[in-house]
C-alpha cells in the first residue's frame, strides 16, 4: 500500500483563535500525513497546538477557532471543501477521536447509555438496527475496553464513575466511529498515574486488533517510542521535526527535541512538562523568525531571529525546521 496516497494529509494548515480582544495565531503552516496502517506520534509541550491540529482535522474546533489556510485531505476527500454530508459520514464511520480530558469529554447531564447509543446509531445507519442491538453493541465496546460490569456503567451518569473508567468509555465511543483512523489526544491527561500506562496499552492493543491507523498525542515519550512508527515534534504551532521513531529518539536533530530528550533522559513514562521549563508562547505576536529561537541554545544568530526556517529534508523521510541544517551552515 506504500504506493497509494496517504490516508490523511494535512498541508500548510493555518488556524487562528479570535477572542473579543485579541487574535491568536495557533497553527502556522503545519503539514502532516498518515499512511494506511501507520501509527504516528505527535509530541510537544502543552500549548504547542497539538489539540488544535487534531480538532482541525475533524473540523470540530471551538467557535473562536478559524481555519484560515491550507488543506486537509482524507483519502481523496477535501475535508475543508466537501459537502456537509460527506464530512458527517467521515466523522461517523471512518475517523474517531479520543479527547484529552476524560472528565470533560462526557456530558454530565446524560447517562453513558444516552451518549453511546447516540453515537452508535449514527455510526451504524442501517435499517435493521433496533435499540437492543445498539445496547448490545455498546456493551461489546465497553467489554473491549475492559470495563467491569458494563451494564451498570452504561446506566450511570459520568460523574458517578472514576476518571479511568470515563476514559475507557470515551475510547469505546471513539472506536465506534474509528474504522480506519483513530485520533488520540493525550488520552491520559487527568487520570491517575497508575492507570495511565494501562490505558495507553489498551489503546495500542485495540488499534492493533482492529488494524487502525492512529495519531497519538502524548507526553509519555517512552510509550510514544514503543507505540509509533513515525513522530512529529511540535513547537509553538509549528512542526519542528519529522522522523521515523527510532531515528528521532536515537539521534534528535532539532535543538528543541534534543532539549526534550535531555530533560527526560530515562525515556520511561516521565512526562514531558516536568523537566523542561515551559515558557508559554504569546500567540498574539509569536516570535519572529524561528519560533524556538528565544529558548534555543543556538538561537542567537541573526538568521534565526529574522527568517522562519523552511522544512529541510535531511535524509529520506526526515525533515527538520532549523537553520542549523540549512544550506548556509
Amino acid at each position: 500500500m506504500q504506493g497509494a496516497g496517504p490516508l490523511l494529509s494535512v498541508k500548510n494548515l493555518y488556524v487562528k483563535y479570535k477572542s473579543y480582544w485579541y487574535t491568536y495565531h495557533v497553527l502556522d503552516d503545519v503539514s502532516i500525513n498518515v499512511k494506511l496502517g501507520e501509527k504516528v506520534g505527535l509530541i510537544g509541550e502543552s500549548g504547542a497546538g497539538k489539540t488544535t491540529l487534531l480538532k482541525s482535522i475533524l473540523r470540530v474546533l471551538p467557535t473562536q477557532g478559524k481555519i484560515t489556510g491550507g488543506e486537509i485531505f482524507y483519502k481523496d476527500v477535501d475535508l475543508l471543501r466537501c459537502s456537509k454530508q460527506r464530512l458527517l459520514e467521515i466523522r461517523r464511520k471512518n475517523v474517531g477521536m479520543i479527547f484529552q480530558d476524560p472528565l470533560a469529554a462526557l456530558n454530565p447531564v446524560f447517562t453513558v447509555k444516552d451518549q453511546m447509543l447516540e453515537v452508535l446509531r449514527y455510526a451504524n445507519e442501517r435499517a435493521d438496527m433496533n435499540k437492543s442491538d445498539l445496547i448490545n453493541m455498546a456493551l461489546d465496546l465497553l467489554r473491549d475496553t475492559l470495563i467491569p460490569d458494563p451494564e451498570r456503567v452504561l446506566n450511570s451518569y459520568p460523574f458517578q464513575l472514576s476518571g479511568g473508567m470515563r476514559q475507557r468509555i470515551v475510547i469505546a465511543m471513539a472506536l465506534a466511529s474509528a474504522r480506519e483512523l483513530l485520533l488520540a489526544d493525550e488520552p491520559t491527561t487527568n487520570i491517575d498515574v497508575t492507570i495511565q500506562a494501562q490505558i495507553l496499552k489498551l489503546i495500542g492493543d485495540l488499534v492493533e486488533k482492529k488494524g487502525l491507523s492512529m495519531i497519538l498525542v502524548s507526553h509519555a515519550l517512552g510509550l510514544v517510542r514503543k507505540m509509533t512508527d513515525r513522530v512529529y515534534v511540535m513547537y509553538g504551532g509549528n512542526i519542528a521535526e519529522e522522523a521515523p521513531t527510532s531515528k528521532l529518539f536515537n539521534e534528535p536533530l532539532h535543538p528543541y527535541m534534543q532539549l526534550l530528550l535531555k530533560t527526560a533522559p530515562k525515556l520511561v513514562e516521565s512526562p514531558l512538562t516536568e523537566g523542561i521549563k515551559s515558557i508559554p508562547i504569546d500567540y498574539r505576536n509569536p516570535p519572529t523568525g524561528c519560533v524556538f529561537h528565544p529558548r534555543c541554545p543556538y538561537g542567537d544568530q541573526e538568521v534565526c531571529r529574522k527568517v522562519k526556517p523552511p522544512p529541510i529534508e535531511v535524509e529520506k523521510g526526515r525533515f527538520v525546521r532549523c537553520h542549523l541544517y540549512g544550506s548556509g551552515s
Binding site: V60, Q64, R92, M97, A104, L106, Y122, S177
Partner: peptide
C-alpha cells in the same frame, strides 16, 4: 465549546 459537545460533533451527530 466544551469537549463533551465537540466529542459528539466529532462523531458526526
Amino acid at each position: 465549546n466544551k469537549d463533551y459537545v465537540l466529542t459528539l460533533l466529532s462523531h458526526g451527530i
